[in-house]
Design a protein around this nucleic acid. Structure first.
Lengths: 112, 112
DNA sequence: TTGACATGTAACCTTTTAGTTACATATAAT
DNA sequence: ATTATATGTAACTAAAAGGTTACATGTCAA
């Protein structure tokens, strides 16, 4: 579990997960695009390695291309560690209320 | 949000959250006890500061004592970032099945 | 088979982080 | 008032993390 939290600690890696959440099956090359002029391909690859080791992403080889997919299971495990079932509903209601007051739609909400 | 992930990246801090999850309202001194002979009071205080800055804990002063409480809201936000509603049920069912097969009780489950 | 493309590995550098020790402040008790 | 208790701050050190460049391997296409 330590690997999961360590992996999520970096903004670039969270951004990668965001991209895979939007659309799965992306290759290293495709995942590099948003980071062009920010960091090298090798740097992105290091991040992918860390995410994969933490089982936050799953990969499938297709010829010389490696496709990446988000795995939500370890993320879900984070919540179940510190939040009791009865609390979930209260918090969900709370954030829904907050969104409503802010005039934002929960479904289309952009995350920080 | 970055502060939250950074805060959760450290095992000692997660352990502190575990203690506050079990029982809230603990003082710095009390939170130090499990770490005696592992790290200094000042080190624990640094961790508490980081957790507080990330709003993962809330504090209340009572005389010269500072009481600490777990705040589950930012933890819940992690899940909503990368997990769609319809997926939650599937994952919950999956981990319940896994627990059943392992012969462990979900309610009394110890986390890694 | 040769060259281009896609991914992988290694050595190195810089910044961040987790911990320490020493000193400081504030509240409670005698 | 004085002392003990509880928490806070600062300077420093060692290790970990994120990034770079250079080199290596494997697959596709002409």
């Amino acid at each position: 579990m330590d690997a999961v939290f360590k992996a999520l600690a970096d903004e670039s890696r969270r951004s990668i997960l965001d991209h895979l959440y939007t659309q799965g099956g992306k290759t290293l090359g495709e995942l590099c695009e948003p980071f062009a002029q920010i960091m090298s391909r090798q740097a992105v690859m290091k991040h992918l390695r860390i995410l994969e080791d933490a089982h936050l992403i799953t990969t499938v080889w297709s010829g010389r291309e490696k496709k990446h997919y988000l795995n939500p299971v370890p993320i879900h495990a984070i919540e179940t560690r510190w939040i009791r079932k009865f609390e979930k509903q209260r918090i969900d209601a709370l954030s829904a209320l907050k969104s409503a007051l802010e005039g934002t739609d929960t479904k289309g909400k952009k995350n920080a």
